[in-house]
Write a protein that binds this DNA or RNA. Structure first.
Lengths: 219, 219, 219, 219
DNA sequence: AATGAATGAGCTTTCATTCAT
DNA sequence: AATGAATGAAAGCTCATTCAT
């Protein structure tokens, strides 16, 4: 008699390995993580990992692909029904930090290890990251079309800047020895607030005119 | 001045190795870089590297320590004589990107490789990074004391957010296949502008108004 | 006769696997051939192979045993009715090369792979090979008794020499990129001719004189 | 103070490894031989082997190249001053067997393991083997020009046949449990004798005319 | 009988580090 | 100080074999 649901069975082991890998990668880093570490934590034999993944790199990439897919779906759900772009920015920030808080190990892996891949797995294009960040870029564009965000700002620059801000803060939170040192939720509001005001529309503060920024004197 | 001075001689080889290491790390990544690669590029024997550095990690850490020291000194010089905190923010952003542009290999190493070293992240305290960013936190605090930055914003959160924004954009610039795809200088202004407006108090001080940021020529 | 007979069924799968193994061994070599390759080519599951054979070595050995058995039976049939020992030599050579030509993959396996297995060489006694070659030794002995082959020649030495000659030429033919480069049949005559003359007694019997060997069309 | 002769020093370790490899390959076969086996026997570390050879294959190929070079030089010296082609054949056979006798392990490696490479290292052309055998082909051609060897025999076919005969006998000698079971020297004479007579020239044995060889009846 | 998912031992190769010269 | 040959630990991956179904 076969298992109740072989597909489910397979999925279980696949996921089992991925979850073990996330923990191990987060703990020791991708390069220091051994396949045998992942296997042991997943409760399978070393060779079994190669039944589900081509190699160690493939494990990392699959983590990225699958987990980012969930993240993207999640942020879309979180934004559903919200019409105010500025409110969307706040929700995005909070959602991001919520995920970091709930999936600390995953956050570590995605933040740090993936950059390695991004750079060294030459052929790999992190489409999923672009898709996730594209959600933010779309918010910005909608805000610009709605007149609440200045149209002269490049959505892509804002996208990277916003993500970089969130990412760096998440990193510091992850690295912090006392994890409760600061509240990610409150921080989300701070960051969202600064960006919202910074991107905000055409009504410039009264009585001020931009100064020419001085050129930086090179050292 | 003849190069006979032994101390000078030593320093020369020390720097020679570090500069070679920066190039090699940037090219192949820390883990794929071999000591023999560095030695060959520096024109010394493999063993010689161990006369100047404890091990491979030490080479990376020393790069960080020494180069961040220079970076810190440089940003202080760049900010000298500027009194307006908002202007300082702009200068900081421009200075940061100028360094990235002028020292691409170093930027790659500091941005990516350093984060990869778990040793670095979990045991090593990057005091120099804190010192560099502390310059920005001080700007914020001065702005708050001067009433041009809202006092309810946490300078540390702003510091990490600002650095994260700069860092992420620098990363994208470094990763971009066509390096001239977008102007880091214009982007510096955009990011600084958003933060300046975002952090601004309700009663703006004259001269703190951002300049028109130039639009990035497509991603 | 219906194929329902279980014994017959078993034999079918047994042969199916052996034939698949011959192809795979010839293609990739014994060591590079995977059990799963053989299973796939035979259209059975990996595990099924272990129902018919003890292990991978056993597959190779069984190929040898069974195919050599057929070879031996075949050469005996080919020699049937021939009385002249010298003519038998010629027939043997032609028969051998005909088999190589008709069963190229099998020839490759028997020639090359079998020798590689140290197990085969040092623990296994290739009785079947001795039996096959024994046919030739018998021819020689009969020739010596009949006075057409010099009695001072050791039949075993001649046996190995003759087989070695045939085998080496077959190997070159198998390895040749252009398989039609030379005719194995003509070469069979040349080799047989040299051995017949070389072994001939001083007072030749009529009819033992070799035919003109055809010249090989370039190497 | 450097070693007396660094080149000599290097050569020593190079040769040390090759000689160890010959023994190990002969004992366990190429595929079952582990690099660590070779290293242990050579008295060096595993990694040292990779300072002198690219990989395991390269060790085998180098054995072939270098040892065949010596073999070729040796057979030429052995043939020096001999003018009679038939005598040359005898000397060649004796020389070959002498080498097998004196370098049993090497003979095993060259005979068996090399065929694997020959077949599977697709790009590899065993030029040295052709060069060695070419010496024999030349003898045949000279004999044909001198009228002592029938001109209708293809020198290449004879070359492979002769080598195959020697090789097979050498193999049996190597495999024989009682190594003194038969004298290679006497056997050399037998084989040479058969070939010499078999190849011999235009004076056919009196009173005999070649019969048409019957066509082999296929099984 | 048949399956094929799972196992885990086995081995080549790399490269940071050492140390005799 | 400098060299660079030598070291040897370490680990990713393969694949013959097993066994629960």
């Amino acid at each position: 008699m076969p298992p109740v649901d072989p597909a489910r069975e397979r999925t279980d082991k696949h996921d089992l390995i991925l979850d073990a890998a996330i923990d191990v990668f987060a703990e020791k880093g991708f390069h220091h993580a051994r396949i045998s570490d992942i296997a042991r934590r997943a409760g399978v034999a070393d060779g079994t990992i190669y039944l589900y993944f081509r190699n160690k790199d493939d494990v990392l990439l699959t983590i990225f692909e699958e987990k980012m897919g969930i993240l993207i779906a999640g942020v879309r759900v979180a934004l559903e029904g919200i019409t105010d772009p500025m409110q969307k920015v706040r929700v995005f920030a909070r959602y991001h930090f919520r995920q970091v808080e709930d999936h600390r190990a995953l956050a570590e892996v995605l933040q740090i290890e993936l950059r390695l891949s991004n750079k060294f797995l030459k052929e790999y294009r992190p489409e999923k990251l672009w898709e996730y960040l594209g959600v933010f870029a779309t918010i910005v564009r909608e805000g610009q079309e709605g007149g609440v965000i200045r149209p002269d700002l490049d959505p892509f620059v804002l996208m990277w800047a916003f993500f970089g801000a969130l990412d760096e803060i998440a990193m510091q939170w992850v690295l912090a020895k006392r994890r409760d040192k600061f509240s990610l939720e409150a921080t989300a509001d701070t960051v969202a607030d600064v960006f919202i005001r910074g991107m905000a529309g055409m009504e410039p503060t009264a009585g001020s005119e931009p100064s020419r920024p001085r050129t930086v004197e090179e050292t």
